[in-house]
Amino acid sequence: MTQRKNGLAAFGLAAALLCLTGCKGAKNRPVNVVGSTSVQPFAEVLAQEYEKRNPAERVEVQGGGSTAGLQAAVNGLADIGMCSRSLNEAEAGQFTPITIARDGLAIVVNPANTVDGLSLEQLRGIFSGRIANWEAVGGKGSPIRLIAREEGSGTRESFMHLVMDKDRIPAGAIAQESNGAVKELVKGDPAAIGFMSLGLVGKELKALAIDGAEPTHENVLNGKYKLARPFLFAVKGAPGAGAQKFIDFVLSADAQKMLEDEGLIRAK
């Protein structure tokens, strides 16, 4: 008897679980936003505010990387793909890109580093391995430690596009898998140099001036600081009603102001 009861209880539990996962989608389909880990924290802030203002709507934000986000948008797994670089030609044909903000690409070093600025040429020299000692660019003599991002990251692609041209980052460069990991490493290593989203630099790292322009919002807006990239929402075809509503919110003055407060540069 008790055995049967247990069996029944287990079946009931399984049925309840199934129903729970099943019902969740049926009641209120969330807008799925997937992609770049650089855009993700900002999208999360926006989603939170959006849900607060529209209690009926739900937005789910996931990371995974720019390319993965675009792929998810193609497959229909995501309503909106987040991308932290310009679309390449093949991709541009598939998506409608919506620039939600712009982000400076900061070149970061340890605060103990005496170098305050580099020319774009020097930067390229450093990241291609031609300049291997801080002494060569006016710092204290110690080998330069390159901190890059992993192959395929939107931040890396933007960096390659904006800085490296045809040069390669040497295989010996350390690869970290997130802005946070780059930050953690540069924070502790006086010889390190890395690149990351300007919005996420914080106060513990020194962001270098490039070609004499400090990495500030004004300089990105007026074009003096050259290392800037778009943060895109990519949608395939016409977005659904829920997605469109969220996009409209993101482009509204309020949301743009929020993005600016978070350290990004407004879209227009």
């Binding site: 990387g65 295989a171 350390i174 690869a175």
Partner: peptide, 29 residues
């Protein structure tokens, strides 16, 4: 450290097979 180089010493960074998959699978096609 995940650098793609044969490590020259135990103080050099390196990348393992597992990390290679985990690092790049999100982007790969």
């Amino acid at each position: 450290g995940n650098s793609i180089e044969i490590p020259g010493s135990i103080l050099a960074p390196t990348r393992t097979l597992t990390s290679n998959i985990a690092l790049e699978m999100g982007y790969a096609s």
